[in-house]
Simulated scan of single mutants.
Amino acid sequence: MQEMCDFLAEQPSFGCEYISATEISSAAMNHRQEMKFQFRLQRPSRLALVGEEGPMGMTVVSDGKQLTQYIPAFERYVQDDAPENLDDLFNGDAVMVLMMLGPAGGFIPTGGDGYCDRMMSGVTDVDEAGVEMVGSIPCERFDFKQEAFDWSLWIRKGEQPVPVKMSVDISEQAAEMGALPEGATLLSTVEMKDWNLSPQWTDEDFRFVPPAGAKLAESLMEGIGAGGAPAVHPLIGEPAPLFETRDRNEKKVTLEAVMKDQVVVLDFLGDLVRPVCRCVAEGGSGDGKV
């Protein structure tokens, strides 16, 4: 673990594909939802975590002078002074996007003592589990125990000990909260692929360009109504926009074809919402119907 932290700290710049996923497994079904990012780092204070795929598409960019956080679903971004060093990104609750990533947000590989301390905070026991393959990469696996949860880390063997995978088992907490049926598991995982340890980053790699429709705001929560309720959306009371998607069997489904002469209820599920975890693990909606 320390060897990995020291190795990363010695690198002036690096990058990788960063894949954060939530996995719910039970006898009824297996469900995986993932978000893909491109991660770039350049010392002393440049960092970019750019969302490419997934339900949120969140982005954090620090160009050394300005820190930008962007959430497409909110159609807004916020900007503030960049921290003097990368460890300060993870102190307190200043970076909401990293907090929203849960365990994956805290595992972003910055290297150094601050990174190692962040990873080892609360750890009560460590077990060297031996060598395992992650895809085609031989890795050393370490299992960590904490009061809140257990987690595992896979580090590439050899002269370049970079992290390859992390998995946090939060099944016990979810079950205690009533979010999972008996026998189901809930994992938060991170995979780091295609490491580049000698990139030629330029200013453009750490420049945030606001997408069309995105607005600069004072807070990412700007627009939330009184009492924490969202402001009324302009589509309320209007005909539903037609769209197409795919069902669990990857079959194309269109709203127009489903509606016809019947009422259609759209249920938007968030993986870490208690009833959602349970209904997904049970293989259906909250009332037992698929």
Rank of each mutant, 00 (worst) to 15 (best):
M133I: 07
I137K: 01
I137W: 01
P138C: 03
P138T: 08
E140H: 05
F142P: 03
E147N: 07
A148W: 01
D150W: 02
S152C: 04
W154C: 02
R156D: 08
E159K: 00
Q160S: 13
P161V: 12
P163F: 07
K165E: 12
V168T: 14
D169V: 06
D169G: 03
S171A: 04
S171V: 05
E172N: 09
Q173G: 14
Q173C: 02
A174N: 02
E176M: 07
E176K: 00
G178M: 06
L180N: 05
P181N: 10
G183S: 03
A184G: 06
L187H: 05
L187C: 06
S188T: 10
S188M: 13
T189H: 04
T189I: 15
V190R: 01
D194A: 15
W195V: 11
W195E: 14
L197F: 08
P199M: 08
P199R: 01
P199H: 02
P199E: 14
P199Q: 10
T202W: 02
D203Q: 01
D205K: 00
R207E: 13
R207P: 04
R207I: 15
F208M: 06
A212C: 07
A212V: 06
A212Q: 11
A217C: 08
E218D: 14
L220D: 09
G225D: 09
A226N: 12
G227E: 10
G228Q: 07
A229V: 15
P230D: 14
A231T: 15
A231I: 13
V232A: 15
H233C: 13
P234Q: 08
L235W: 09
P239C: 09
T245K: 02
T245S: 12
T245Q: 06
T245W: 01
D247F: 00
R248I: 15
N249Q: 12
K251E: 15
T254W: 02
L255M: 10
L255P: 06
A257E: 14
A257K: 08
